[in-house]
């Protein structure tokens, strides 16, 4: 989504967000992310208001003091930015890819099943199955910090069973243009 993105051409406008809308975003975040009220409060203090940055193709980025905090495509679930995930790695369910897949991921490729099912990868156990279409954080084998964010294309159980084709569609990754965009 952010492989090619430049603030000069892709941003169409910045607006303040109505407080009622902010409230609904806040409750949406609480329900979508694994985050409690206090932590959300430290990420996004109640007194501060976020600014909505509208971009091409219905992408909306929300910034706090100019720093992108989270974004959304159309009315899909909210994604934290990768920098926010580095600070709070527990926001979304996590999966791990093996070492061989890292360099493809950093080139912006979607993640295929074998990269997740092999020895270096990690998928949550069957009882914590992740459904298809869920935002996930991608970690990498042998690395401490997250490397990308994506959406699952099939449930984790299907990944194990089918073990073929795209498992996680990459949304933003380390080194893409959203990463390069530190201030908006």
């Amino acid at each position: 989504m952010f492989k090619k993105f430049s603030a000069a051409t892709d941003v169409s406008g910045q607006t303040n967000v109505k407080s009622s809308v902010q409230r609904s975003i806040r409750s949406a975040l609480l329900s979508q992310w694994k985050v409690d009220q206090d932590t959300l409060e430290s990420i996004w203090p109640k007194k501060e208001s976020v600014i909505l940055v509208k971009c091409r193709e219905h992408i909306s980025i929300y910034t706090l003091h100019g720093e992108p905090l989270f974004f959304q495509h159309f009315d899909e679930p909210f994604f934290p930015t990768l920098r926010l995930v580095h600070k709070y790695p527990f926001l979304l369910p996590k999966v791990r890819i093996d070492r061989g897949a890292i360099r493809f991921l950093l080139a912006g490729a979607h993640m295929m099943c074998p990269g997740l099912t092999s020895a270096g990868g990690y998928l949550p156990p069957p009882e914590n199955e992740i459904k298809a279409g869920t935002p996930v954080v991608l970690f990498a084998e042998g690395k401490e910090h997250a490397v990308a964010l994506g959406v699952t294309k099939m449930s984790t159980e299907d990944m194990r069973r089918i073990n073929k084709n795209t498992a996680v569609e990459t949304v933003t990754y380390l080194g893409d243009d959203l990463w390069a965009l530190q201030k908006l």
């Binding site: 409690d36 206090d38 932590t39 409060e41 430290s42 990420i43 600070k87 709070y88 790695p89 527990f90």
Partner: peptide, 8 residues
Amino acid sequence: ISQAIPPI
């Protein structure tokens, strides 16, 4: 987790 988790 009842308390705010500090950022890493």
